[in-house]
């Protein structure tokens, strides 16, 4: 398998160089998306399927889509003014990279988390350790992470980012959207439910759902009125609201912020995750489609 790892690593580095040096914006974004998929593959090799799912859906898929939108709107890359810093910068960067590789490879973490997770997993209410960490042991991180999504939504709203107006793609795309959207809903539900015992969870499910919604929007099948955008904004905000209310509610019940009541942990976790899935899907969708219809170009 070492040969596969080496080939994968080489492919990853090649894609990164290509994504950061190609002069054609679309080619560079395409290289970035391939990079995301290869990286997801490498994370399967590193025994992190939860992360691989999220990277493929969010890192490669949605980020790539955002980059494509921006590449279209920003226009072609302007030729840079003659700068001669490239060679010294490359030397410094490769020195730094070499140093970091050496430092990271020589450090080996003492096993502190693994035994703690193993000992606490039965009390967490779920059997997938990653979900247990995300929604129980370190749920406060996750709550703040949802807050980051909300603030990004607020900033995009403030900027009045231009709304994506779907061009007519012809009726050949209709069957695609009509099949993909329901499947994505099913898949999101499956990932959400599966997350408590196997790879999956709110983020992966939310990203898949957002993908299905975007297929509908791009095929022109979804309503795009001002009221719909406003509803989506409220839905995007509601995930954090539910999480915060659950945090304070659990404190009222058990005396500890985000300390779920005994033996009811799974109910709390799945309820929070369900709210997060919807809200993440709405947020990611809105971040891609934008808010305001503006006349410029």
């Amino acid at each position: 398998m070492i040969a596969f790892d080496l080939a994968l690593a080489a492919g990853i580095l090649l894609c990164a160089v290509s994504a950061l040096t190609r002069r054609d914006r679309t080619a560079s974004v395409a290289a970035f998306m391939v990079l995301g998929l290869l990286v997801a593959l490498s994370w399967v090799r590193l025994a992190a399927p939860d992360v691989a799912l999220a990277e493929a859906a969010i890192g490669a898929g949605l980020t790539g889509a955002l980059f494509l939108r921006a590449a279209r709107r920003l226009g072609p890359l302007r030729p840079a003014a003659g700068r001669t810093l490239a060679v010294p910068a490359a030397l410094v960067a490769s020195g730094l990279g070499g140093g970091l590789a050496w430092v990271f490879a020589s450090a080996s973490p003492p096993a502190i988390y693994a035994p703690l997770v193993a000992a606490s997993l039965p009390e967490s209410g779920v059997s997938n350790p990653v979900t247990a960490v995300l929604l129980n042991f370190r749920a406060w991180d996750t709550l703040l992470e949802i807050a980051v999504l909300v603030v990004a939504l607020l900033v995009a709203n403030l900027l009045g980012s231009r709304r994506l107006v779907p061009v007519s793609l012809g009726e050949m795309t209709l069957p695609f959207a009509r099949i993909v959207a329901p499947i994505s809903i099913l898949l999101a539900g499956h990932l959400l439910w599966q997350g408590s015992s196997a790879p999956g969870g709110a983020f992966q499910a939310g990203a898949v759902l957002a993908g299905g919604l975007l297929a509908l929007v791009l095929a022109g099948l979804a309503p795009t009125g001002t009221l719909v955008v406003r509803g989506a904004l409220i839905a995007g905000l509601s995930g954090l609201a539910v999480f915060l209310i659950a945090a304070l509610g659990s404190e009222a019940l058990t005396g500890s912020l985000l300390g779920y009541p005994n033996r009811a942990e799974k109910v709390w976790i799945v309820a929070i995750e369900a709210a997060l899935t919807l809200s993440i899907a709405a947020t990611l969708c809105l971040l891609f489609t934008g808010f305001e219809k503006r006349k410029t170009s």
């Binding site: 070492i2 690593a9 990164a16 490769s94 990271f104």
Partner: peptide, 15 residues
């Protein structure tokens, strides 16, 4: 391999 690849990504990005 992945340590080196990760550090390589860091170096390319910083450059």
């Amino acid at each position: 391999v992945y340590h080196v690849a990760g550090a390589g990504l860091l170096a390319i990005a910083l450059w």
